[in-house]
């Protein structure tokens, strides 16, 4: 079974660095120590049998305000595909707010360059060693990382008849 193979490979080789695993609707996920993520991913990529050599996506979650936030505010998610075995694996790692940075994969996969820039732009996770960690989606003038929970959802206060007098006509917003 593919899943068993992956599990034996990871736990056998990395031991403590694999923190936990869970399966959701048959999709296996592993929580990995933040410092070990690149090492684990490269091992999965290099292994001739597993051959997870296709980086599907890098994304992130902000857990601010959740009861489990103290385990790490940000969760970085790597989705890898093995074209050889047509199987998929998800690696997750948690980062504390004050240490929101992780090793880049942009030297290992070309596509990681833009994926990491997207995560940086929207979530503000730093990727150490990235050659050009700049904005990719949002407008130049926008400050901050809009998918962080503390960015605020609304852009302007909506005007209704009951609050119209409280609202300035020109919004006090730096992007205008």
């Amino acid at each position: 079974m593919m899943e068993d193979k992956i599990r034996t490979f990871l736990t056998g080789r990395f031991g403590d660095k694999i923190l936990s695993e869970y399966s959701h609707r048959g999709q296996l996920s592993f929580y990995v120590q933040a410092q070990a993520v690149r090492e684990v991913i490269l091992a999965l990529k290099a292994d001739s049998e597993l051959k997870f050599d296709f980086l599907t996506d890098i994304t992130a979650v902000d857990h601010q305000g959740q009861s489990w936030e103290k385990e790490g505010r940000f969760e970085i998610i790597y989705i890898l595909t093995s074209l050889k075995n047509t199987s998929r694996i998800i690696l997750r790692t948690k980062l504390q707010e004050d240490a929101a940075s992780i090793a880049t994969l942009s030297g290992d996969w070309g596509c990681a360059n833009w994926l990491e820039r997207e995560v940086w732009d929207l979530m503000g996770i730093k990727f150490e060693g990235h050659p050009d960690l700049t904005k990719i989606l949002t407008v130049e003038e926008l400050e901050g990382h809009p998918l962080r929970k503390d960015f605020g959802i609304t852009y302007e206060m909506p005007q209704f008849s009951h609050n119209s007098s409280d609202i300035e006509v020109v919004p006090d917003n730096p992007h205008h």
Partner: peptide, 12 residues
């Protein structure tokens, strides 16, 4: 008026 997209990405 921006519709339901009262957010950073859409012109209001």
């Amino acid at each position: 008026c921006g519709g339901v997209f009262n957010n950073y990405a859409i012109v209001q």
